[in-house]
């Protein structure tokens, strides 16, 4: 029961965000995946080339949207939050 409560508490701290980017090829996907996966607080990640989106689930106690956006920008890609 304790474990379940702890898991629920952790999940509650996780936040989802989807960025629209200008990725255009598989190598862009690789570059974003290889770098974002190891950013502090990132818990899940999906880069979709067809939709040109980057979905990130993150721990809001360790990172935030602005930090993630900066990481994507630093890698050379645009990042606008998809509403």
């Amino acid at each position: 029961m304790k474990t379940l409560l702890l898991t629920l508490a952790l999940l509650a701290a996780f936040t989802d965000v989807t960025f629209l980017t200008n990725v255009h090829c598989q190598k862009c996907v690789e570059k974003l995946e290889e770098n974002l996966a190891f950013e502090k607080g990132v818990k899940d990640l999906k880069v979709n080339l067809k939709d040109k989106t980057v979905y990130v689930r993150y721990d809001s106690t360790k990172t935030n949207v602005e930090k993630l956006r900066k990481v994507i920008n630093k890698l050379g890609y645009s990042a606008e939050i998809k509403k």
């Binding site: 255009h24 090829c25 598989q26 996907v29 979709n48 080339l49 067809k50």
Partner: peptide, 9 residues
Amino acid sequence: TDSLSEAVT
């Protein structure tokens, strides 16, 4: 935007 629209993840 056109070159690799088919080449996806």
